[in-house]
């Protein structure tokens, strides 16, 4: 009796955890998507990131070509921190860069940069 009780309790516990995960997982995914959406908005906005001025990005209209197309970003930047550094101050990697120093010259806030980095890294 005690045994089966324990088993039952265990099973109930597992079920509860699973149900909890089921409840949590879609929520987190939605949150992630909306954060990516925010990053995309910032990246596409002419007044904010304006990445399209110079880069081709999937889903963006009339992109420029001063910089390389933003594709396969995880392959090009396996380290997210390196991508963030490039967006924050591109002159560190190349003093003759034509890229805006988004962080160093405060074109975007730190929070905005994080969102843009998340979005660009997802490309």
């Amino acid at each position: 009796m005690t045994r089966s009780n324990t088993k039952l309790a265990l099973a109930a516990g597992i079920l509860a955890v699973m149900a909890g995960q089921l409840a949590v997982v879609p929520g987190a995914a939605a949150e992630g998507n909306s954060a990516l959406e925010e990053g995309k908005k910032l990246a596409f906005s002419r007044k904010k990131g304006n990445c399209l001025a110079c880069h081709m990005i999937e889903g963006g209209t009339s992109p420029g070509n001063v910089g390389p197309p933003l594709i396969a970003m995880k392959a090009r930047y396996p380290d997210r921190a390196k991508l963030r550094a490039q967006i924050w101050d591109a002159s560190q990697a190349n003093p003759d860069t034509a890229m805006v120093l988004f962080g160093r010259y405060q074109v975007l806030t730190e929070k905005e940069i994080d969102k843009v980095v998340d979005f660009i890294w997802s490309l």
């Binding site: 399209l52 001025a53 110079c54 009339s62 992109p63 420029g64 070509n65 001063v66 003759d96 034509a98």
Partner: peptide, 15 residues
């Protein structure tokens, strides 16, 4: 120079 030497002929958006 950034625009008119280094990147002359490239496009910023459609320009």
């Amino acid at each position: 120079a950034s625009c008119h030497l280094q990147n002359a002929g490239m496009r910023v958006r459609t320009e």
